[in-house]
């Protein structure tokens, strides 16, 4: 093996990654194009809202309450090192609304929704249902992709809002039951401390993460390989790609929103 072989391998990997990014960007562009032109499938959209938004409430709620509770314990322990235990309500609130609410909510939705979209559309692809849609004069991008992407973009921020509230409640529960905070003071400190943009930025992140999740699910589903193995691979890739993209875009958005 020559010395340059690893370099060639690396180069090939970079090129493949760039090509995949390009294809994904084209797919996103086409989705946005179809979003603006009729026909629109209202029933599919409402169904997707139910599947993506409403049915994700339990997982997002559970994730939020345990995260808020653990956060309160950690901040209390950390704050105790420099006699700042009193900041628990404020830090729980800002941590949940700016970061943990959207990111953990987004990741849970990625696990639940990107996988199911990719598996569903991938199965439709391998059983020729996508071909059948085309022959029945229905554009699969409009009929399958647009409703899901739109529904996720609109409902994930709502999930994040609910998650924020539940997370703060988790902190409040631990704060009042375990750490000896006064209930009214805890709530007052939380509400007075939070600014609109703390919550608003998290909701914007939620919309971006929702878009990413549904887009990855649809993209990998539509490009699924043949057979059960192809669908399995598409599902896995959709979840991995959505999760990584959520974390990466979260960093970028945080830089844009909060760096001075």
């Amino acid at each position: 093996m020559s010395l340059t072989a690893p370099l060639a391998h690396l180069g090939a990997m970079v090129l493949a990654a760039l090509a995949a990014t390009g294809r994904l960007a084209l797919f996103a562009g086409r989705t946005l194009g179809h979003l603006l032109t009729p026909p629109f499938y209202l029933r599919e959209f409402l169904h997707a809202c139910l599947q993506i938004g409403w049915l994700s409430l339990p997982v997002v709620g559970l994730t939020a309450i345990f995260t808020g509770a653990a956060l309160a314990l950690q901040i209390y322990a950390g704050g105790a090192r420099f006699s700042a235990e009193a900041v628990v309500p404020q830090i729980v609130a800002i941590g949940m609304t700016r970061e943990l609410g959207p990111v953990l909510g987004g990741l849970m939705v990625a696990a639940r929704v990107a996988s199911s979209i990719a598996a569903e559309i991938g199965t439709m692809k391998v059983t020729e249902q996508i071909d059948a849609l085309v022959t029945l004069s229905t554009n699969p991008m409009k009929y399958l992709t647009v409703p899901r992407v739109l529904a996720a973009t609109l409902t994930v921020p709502l999930l994040v809002a609910v998650g924020d509230a539940i997370g703060v409640m988790g902190g409040w529960l631990v704060g009042t039951e375990r750490l000896g905070f006064n209930s009214a003071t805890y709530m007052k400190n939380t509400i007075e401390f939070l600014e609109f943009w703390d919550i608003g930025s998290g909701l914007v992140k939620g919309a971006v993460f929702g878009f990413i999740v549904a887009l990855m699910g649809c993209y990998y589903g539509m490009n699924s390989g043949r057979g059960a193995q192809g669908v399995g691979r598409a599902t896995k890739s959709a979840v991995v790609a959505a999760s990584v993209a959520i974390l990466a875009s979260n960093y970028v958005l945080t830089e844009v929103f909060f760096s001075a």
Binding site: M124, T127, E128, Q129, D131, A132, L133, T135
Partner: peptide
């Protein structure tokens, strides 16, 4: 103008 019966049926499940 076309109708197509797919080999596997391809029904929307």
């Amino acid at each position: 103008r076309f109708g197509m019966l797919f080999q596997g049926g391809a029904l929307f499940d």
